[in-house]
Design a binder for these strands. Structure first.
Lengths: 328, 328
DNA sequence: CAGGGCTTGTCAAGGCTTTGTTCAGTGATA
DNA sequence: TATCACTGAACAAAGCCTTGACAAGCCCTG
């Protein structure tokens, strides 16, 4: 049994609102202690959350309450709104040209001497669990060149080298983890530094259900932000329904799925199918090492492997959908 | 059998609170010496810890006590289960209710209005996928107080509330992910800012094999660093052999395992067993919501729930092992 | 387009309750 | 002797309760 304050925290409502909803609409009838304190059970919390959801969906509170008070209402069915307000929008003209489908995040060719030695340094620092050393090397990488180039030229190759060493058993899992963590932290720094304003996200980046290796997707999210895009980063393993709900709520125009493992191809397809059914479907792009494995039939564009190019593609798509003049 | 002082040290409660909880709620009935001194057994300590956990989770003390006094309560099963643990379960869109269900705030001793409203704000920003909003709230949190306090007072309760909202289906997985990501990024910032020198790590923090929810462990790593410890953070899902290898290579004196889900208890045990066989075995500590579930036989100390206290314990252990006067 | 009425979130006043802490005085322990 | 414990009482701060009022927003009507 929760006190009213806990109920407030859990629902995000204010204490006053909870009380007034009870007083005016009787949406909940919390038990009382001997001293008269309200005590909410789980069902009460759920009712409040449902009411809140209805109100957020545009129902007048009185109406929402009336709906909730109908007998035999299925509480569990309510709070998850699927499609929200069907706001009419300019037709989405989808660019049809295919972008080159490169193998992977990074080319892997044309690295300079210096870059190569930095990659090697990074790998050996990782192998020795030398996090401060890695930090120093990363400092050097990012000091010498733009984020995007450092990622493609050094960090990403190093990660790949570490990954395959791990597969061969020549590097320990712990070292691989520590390296990923360190790099992830560095990316987070850039993500924060690139902070854009308060606008509603127009691009959503994440991995399909079951997808777990998110560093590439995160790097892309950072690059997008740096280019001024309003990126919402969801991270690993996002179920299809969540993609749908998120797109519906944010009305984002572009969705980017990381396809980082063989299994991600199918789960990405599942997400794409689900997203196609939305009334205003977003443009879906896939990127990552296994994006090339996606069947051509799949209704998604493939991102170029190079970060800069990939970001450019997204920018262009957003531009063209924003002014619905003519695309492609 | 412990005196009240020892019980206080063990639980992190104050002596006065232990007495008053006994008097007012009857949560424990310690045996007495002939002279009337209280003597607590392990079960009593566990009850106190459970009560403390419930209160930290936001239950009003009276409610927490009532739960503890229900007949047939399983002590070991209690203090956990707020499960920030979104085990995706992709097909079932959402477990209907009938889940335990925990509240969320950390009252401890007097969470201000302000903190509580920040928790609520954080939760509702998360619910609305409003990452910039979350960032703003986090700014406020960390501006107003020390990192450790902000984590315990606001961030951690908010995460817990979001986790259980997820379990109830009143918040979307995507929102939960976006929130975790945002908080994780924030922690990374502090991790970087606390950068210690180049010394070899003396403390290794990570999750046992199969363990996935790392935010708590990461927060501890940050706190440790801030306290000047040389922490190596390994992250989630580290196999036992890797733990062994890492300890052997770094000769770290302390290993900290996050026990964040029921399954982590067993896998932590596995790691501990493996570490015991090293020629110079480290001190192993376990922390996290399910650490209390670990059998007493387990060869590991339990960290106090409070960040500051936990760090203090580690510092003390390092001090005492560095000058090998006497070991516990 | 103005004005009246209704809806709805917020706030304040005044008064209990809950809860962690403190104090005084006394006895036990090492 | 200094520290630790015990009891009971007393507090202060924070929670919570109810009632009533109010301002902003919305809708309808004239």
């Amino acid at each position: 049994m929760y006190t009213i304050k806990q109920a407030a925290v859990r629902t995000g409502l204010s204490v006053a609102v909870i009380r007034v909803w009870e007083r005016r609409y009787g949406v909940v009838h919390p038990a009382r202690t001997a001293a008269g304190y309200r005590l909410y059970d789980d069902e009460a919390i759920q009712r409040l959350a449902a009411m809140q959801q209805l109100v957020a969906d545009g129902w007048a509170p009185s109406q929402a309450a009336q709906r909730l008070l109908e007998p035999g209402i299925d509480l569990a069915a309510l709070p998850n709104r699927q499609s929200v307000n069907p706001r009419p929008m300019p037709s989405l003209s989808r660019p049809t040209d295919r972008f080159g489908s490169e193998p992977s995040l990074t080319s892997g060719s044309g690295l300079g001497e210096r870059d190569l030695s930095l990659v090697a340094d990074l790998v050996s620092a990782a192998r020795e669990l030398d996090v401060p050393g890695m930090e120093r090397i990363l400092d050097e990488c990012f000091a010498a060149q733009r984020f995007e180039l450092a990622i493609e030229g050094i960090v990403s190759p190093a990660l790949r080298a570490i990954g395959s060493s791990w597969a061969e058993g020549t590097i320990d899992v712990a070292a691989e983890h520590a390296a990923s963590e360190t790099i992830r932290r560095r990316l987070a720094r850039f993500f924060d530094a690139a902070g854009v304003g308060d606008r509603v996200p127009s691009v959503i980046v994440g991995l399909p259900p079951g997808g777990y290796h998110e560093i590439g997707a995160f790097a892309f999210a950072v690059a997008g932000r740096r280019a001024g895009l309003d990126v919402l980063y969801l991270g690993a393993n996002v179920p299809a329904e969540s993609w749908v709900r998120t797109v519906n709520e944010t009305r984002a125009g572009v969705v980017i799925l990381g396809v980082v493992a063989p299994a991600d191809v199918d789960s990405a397809a599942e997400v794409i199918d689900a997203l196609r059914l939305i009334d205003r479907p977003p443009v879906v792009l896939i990127g990552g090492p296994f994006a090339a494995d996606a069947p051509d039939a799949m209704d998604a564009l493939r991102l170029p492997a190079a970060l800069d190019a990939a970001v450019a593609v997204v920018v262009e798509i957003l531009d063209s959908t924003r002014r619905p003049t003519s695309a492609a």
